[in-house]
């Protein structure tokens, strides 16, 4: 019962699929723009442009027809995913280096679309994360609770020159009223827990108030909506997202059940960081994921399990990129052991 993906006639070309994916990122991108300001837009624009330009240059270098190569929009999707993953107001060269590396090395060195063993966007993101840890962990606070909200002109200056018109650096906009630097909810939780606070004590922090946390819960809900749209249009299948979100819920639920004071709750896991973006847009990359239905559930579950483990016990606050890359490596093995039996054959 191996189903070949989409039965929907309208969406069976790569171009159509990619356009649907781009469309589905819109709600998430808009919500991110609402909470984190112009930096999101700058990142998206830069990454998209660099992705298309690198794709065109490499296709030309490889002697391929670059018009048809560009018009499948797969490079654009890679660019957009990196743009969404980057911290708003990270300097422009961060976006450029990451996107260029993703398209050139993670995609084309392995043979281009359809041959890359790793998710190109996540390779680019991890390259940046290990290369520029400071820039990559300086997330703006949601602008509705930020002490120093950042306007368009200052955003542009910070993006281009790393300093705004008043001479403030990015750090100024990361601070809250007490002069402490605010971080993402996951970062805040991780730092707090490592300093010996319990999760209940940490709930009082401004960024962690609200239903799950400020800003990020809505970003995740928006990506969830976009993901559900992709599911209904049969652009992606339910196996990977359900496997991943289910594993996150179960793993973090178990940890919370063992000791709720020391472990982040399942709800916070599900609606923080890159969880929903990862589950619906990143892990579902058809090229680098497992391909059999059972394999895809295992693939997704592996990612979800690793996300919780790394978030709780690892050195980084979020873990979707690492988890996806690790499971990309395991995908051929998973496929090998989940081959459906051909009808009518017996075990040898």
């Amino acid at each position: 019962m191996l189903k070949s993906s989409p039965f929907n006639q309208a969406s069976n070309s790569v171009t159509q699929l990619m356009l649907q994916v781009i469309l589905a990122t819109l709600p998430g991108a808009l919500i991110m723009f609402y909470f984190f300001g112009w930096g999101v837009l700058f990142n998206l624009l830069t990454c998209s442009l660099v992705a298309m330009a690198s794709e065109a240059a490499i296709l030309k270098l490889r002697g391929r027809d670059f018009k048809s190569g560009l018009s499948d929009y797969s490079a654009l999707v890679t660019g957009i995913l990196i743009g969404l993953a980057l911290p708003p107001l990270a300097p422009w060269w961060v976006a450029v280096i990451g996107t260029f590396f993703a398209i050139t090395f993670a995609k084309h060195v392995y043979g281009g679309l359809g041959y890359n063993p790793f998710n190109p966007a996540m390779v680019g993101y991890v390259l940046l994360l290990i290369s520029f840890p400071v820039a990559m962990t300086s997330w703006l606070p949601p602008q509705n609770i930020a002490t120093n909200a950042v306007n368009f002109l200052d955003s542009l200056n910070l993006f281009l020159f790393e300093i705004d018109s008043q001479g403030n650096k990015l750090n100024f906009y990361l601070q809250n009223a007490d002069g402490f630097t605010m971080a993402t909810p996951l970062d805040e939780l991780k730092t707090g827990l490592s300093m010996g606070f319990t999760t209940a004590e940490l709930q009082d922090k401004l960024i962690l108030t609200g239903w799950v946390n400020q800003g990020w819960q809505w970003v995740n809900i928006a990506f969830l909506v976009g993901g559900l749209y992709l599911l209904t249009r049969k652009v992606i299948h339910w196996y990977i997202p359900v496997g991943m979100l289910g594993a996150i819920f179960l793993t973090s639920g178990l940890l919370t059940w063992i000791d709720p004071d020391l472990h982040i709750s399942p709800m916070t896991h599900l609606f923080s960081g890159a969880t929903m973006l990862g589950a619906f847009f990143i892990a579902t990359d058809p090229v680098s994921a497992a391909t059999t239905p059972k394999g895809r559930i295992i693939f997704g579950a592996g990612i979800g399990f690793l996300v919780v483990i790394i978030r709780n016990f690892g050195g980084y606050p979020d873990a979707v990129a690492f988890a996806v890359l690790l499971l990309n490596m395991a995908a051929p093995l998973i496929d090998h052991f989940t081959q459906p039996k051909v009808y009518g054959t017996r075990d040898a």
Partner: peptide, 16 residues
């Protein structure tokens, strides 16, 4: 530069 391009200094950069 303010921030070194750590990737090039770390072993993965050597492989590439």
């Amino acid at each position: 530069v303010d921030q070194n391009f750590l990737f090039a200094i770390l072993p993965p950069g050597a492989f590439f």
